[in-house]
Amino acid sequence: MVSKTVTVTNEQGIHMRPAGVLAAEMKKFPGCTVTLKVGEKTAKATAIMQLMAAGIKCGSVVEITADGENEQAALDKAVELFESGFGE
């Protein structure tokens, strides 16, 4: 299991579009479970609804955890998406 902490940089937070992008990317790692932890809330990175329910705002500190096959690659991809601001 690997994990890394990132800070949300895109101004609008993780609204529906970034959540969709993240979920779509994470679905490419079927053998790996990626989880986000924000404050007391957790969300599966593949579940758009859970990501939305977490209500992640700009500036939030998110702990990303990947567990399973290709976990390092999955984590790296997730971190890259956060750091790039999901292309916004």
């Binding site: 609008q12 937070g13 609204h15 329910a53 705002k57």
Partner: peptide
């Protein structure tokens, strides 16, 4: 403001 994000978050929480 962040109203849309709050509303989204809330809606999603209950719609799950």
């Amino acid at each position: 403001g962040d109203v849309h994000l709050e509303v989204l978050s809330r809606l999603m929480t209950i719609l799950m």
